[in-house]
Design a protein around this nucleic acid. Sequence first.
DNA 1: GTATCAATTATGCGTGTGGATAACAAGGCG
DNA 2: CGCCTTGTTATCCACACGCATAATTGATAC
Lengths: 227, 227
Amino acid sequence: MVQDRKPYRREAEDKRRHALVEATLALVAEGGAKSATVRAIAQKAGVTAGLIRHYFQGKDQLIAAAYRHLMDRMTEDSAAVLNAAPSDPRARLTAFVAASLQPPVVDPEALILWATFLQETHRDPAMRQTHSQTYLGFRDMLQGLIAALPDMRDAPDPAEPRRLAIACNAVIDGLWMEGCVLPEAFETGELVEIGIRSVGAILGQDLSHYLLLSQPIRYEALMGHPS
Amino acid sequence: MVQDRKPYRREAEDKRRHALVEATLALVAEGGAKSATVRAIAQKAGVTAGLIRHYFQGKDQLIAAAYRHLMDRMTEDSAAVLNAAPSDPRARLTAFVAASLQPPVVDPEALILWATFLQETHRDPAMRQTHSQTYLGFRDMLQGLIAALPDMRDAPDPAEPRRLAIACNAVIDGLWMEGCVLPEAFETGELVEIGIRSVGAILGQDLSHYLLLSQPIRYEALMGHPS
DNA sequence: GTATCAATTATGCGTGTGGATAACAAGGCG
DNA sequence: CGCCTTGTTATCCACACGCATAATTGATAC
């Protein structure tokens, strides 16, 4: 009756928390919220279930941490695009929009993660705040790109840039969403073309010429895939 | 030891199925998918849990029926707008867009329902088909409204109406979404104004003048509220 | 009325869940 | 080398879940 206990290594707190968060994202991405049980998460992270309560107050807190982690990385990657983009404001905006509507970002798993956490937004104030911050951060970034456009100097209404950013953000979100759910319903590059033309129409600019210069950002590494 | 059994009435199959579906939607709307247990659904419908299996093969089938019911009613109400709308194509389109971006339609509960069922879309083929049919139905309706516009006769590309419908649909979806999640982040009428202007910009038309004629559709009665 | 049938309730089962607690061992330190 | 801290495992618990099945009762027909 010799009990062979599972051998283990002691790891740094950061590493363990990170592994648990990644496991949570992976499970939610592949099977929805109901697949992310404490036991499944622990198994995927290579530990036993009890360890979760050693690093998090409960499962809810782990879920919240996973959401925060996901959103932080999305924001980081979005910001990274701006750093690597060319100097022409129109090309930068075009690259940004195009990147958001291509396969790495447009990913069925990404939508599942997003929809899952969005539900919690309604009840959990912390989740709600995370969503709010992330959304506004992304939109502000977009607004900055728009404001840098040459024809945006003479704004009749000071609130105009905000409205334009909201509108362009909506187009991107809507196209991204359907591209994730029904990828087979759109031809390759169709969403990008529609997105660029729509954003251009809203802003009163023709951005089609800058499409060739755009390159996709690596936006999805964080979407439930191990980094 | 007299067992007082719960008194009950025998009801028509339609009525019972409908009550169970409504109870499911209400529970999902207020507490997410995890709140919609068979026992909770039965209690809200005024019956006992066992009855669910008498009318549905299992919980999954009940969920699928609820999703289908929700989408069918959304489509019905959307179509109803077209019947009651004025004859001017621009006014019709404007009324349609405006109705989709106002409080009755823009509703936090609506988003929760939508996001919850959207998750299942990834795994359940029946759910996926329901989504696909509903999305395309809505978009085709929008495309019909766009095609009726006076300036849409001379289309250089036969695929152009489709692209425009996809783009306008995306704007509406994106604005609807954020209006549901962060209602306090937008002023009254702001989303409608942005939506109308954006759709107009995409279509190359100025629809602002027709905004006064628009009236909201009663779109939300189906969103988890008892009809 | 009373027999009949099915709609509905009541009860129980096996499983899996999140959480609590005790036992253990890995690695640092003297 | 041996102790100690604590990261980690192992075990248990109370509960809720979906599902199956038996018992009952409301309505209908004759």
